[in-house]
Design a protein around this nucleic acid. Structure first.
Length: 244
DNA sequence: AACGTAGCCAACCGCTGTCCG
DNA sequence: ACGGACAGCGGTTGGCTACGT
């Protein structure tokens, strides 16, 4: 009996939940998340389970700050591709298939950064851009406290700063769209194409951990029974995500 | 020491595409 | 051909922490 929607757990995951999820992903693979969520006994939606796995528990993930190289790559790729699905219109599913490679940007960028997730990159970018927008705002309005001398950022182009930002009531609240538009306009001046970077849209990363067990994934009856009787204490999750 | 602010990150939400019966 | 289930994506939010005043 699946719990009703309002009974589903939300919020931060506990270590026990993580352990359970890892165990069941090993059995079921990275698919059928709803089913996995139900049989695991996790009081979570399949969606939530998938997100937890993809963004945190996946063994290939790298935890920790981005390196300067990674940051630079993110900036370059984003300057080229933008961030949003649907930037390039398409009128049919075949058009979609043809242009998909250019518009699923966060996940696409993530493919060039092994061990990083689209969510992580998105978060990084958002933080980065907020800072950049603020820098630009201050440099665009010199009348307000003749520049605190340190607002010069190497990543903030004069051209972009010259664009300025229309402000009303002294403070401009930026929507993400506005930020994207401005940054894209500024950065695209010096942006490199993926091809120029020596990059080509790679295939989705394989899931090495599961490939060798794919044929056994769906004869899970026995394993499932086993899993359901195994105490959570037996699960060694710490290897997955608390290592550095 | 207390308070306020900014940055960071995990998680949720809503939408869209794909798959399959 | 159609509709429902599933999967994946970008956008957004909320909480925690570090830092400055």
């Amino acid at each position: 009996m699946a719990p009703k929607a309002e009974e589903m757990r939300k919020g931060p995951w506990t270590e026990q939940e993580d352990s359970l999820l890892v165990r069941f992903v090993r059995l079921f693979g990275e698919r059928r998340w709803d089913c996995l969520a139900k049989v695991s006994g996790l009081n979570r939606t399949g969606k939530s389970c998938r997100l937890r796995w993809v963004n945190y528990l996946h063994p290939d993930l790298i935890h920790g700050r981005m390196t300067p190289e990674e940051e630079h790559l993110v900036l370059d790729l984003h300057a080229k591709w933008g961030n949003r699905f649907g930037l390039q219109p398409y009128s049919s599913s075949s058009d979609y298939m043809n242009t998909q490679c250019t518009i699923r940007s966060w996940s696409r960028i993530a493919r060039y950064l092994p061990g990083r997730t689209d969510n992580e990159i998105k978060n990084y970018w958002r933080t980065h851009m907020r800072r950049k927008a603020q820098e630009r705002k201050t440099s665009a309005s010199p009348s307000s406290s003749s520049s605190s001398s340190s607002s010069s950022s190497s990543s903030c182009s004069p051209a972009a700063a010259a664009q300025g930002v229309v402000q009303s009531e002294g403070v401009k609240v930026y929507s993400m769209d506005e930020i994207w538009d401005e940054i894209a306009a500024a950065d695209s001046v010096s942006g490199l194409t993926a091809e120029e970077c020596g990059l080509a849209c790679p295939p989705p990363l394989p899931c090495p951990m599961w490939e060798d067990c794919s044929e056994s994934l769906w004869k899970v009856d026995d394993e499932y029974k086993m899993a359901t009787v195994l105490p959570v204490d037996d699960l060694m999750i710490s290897d997955f995500h608390y290592s550095d």
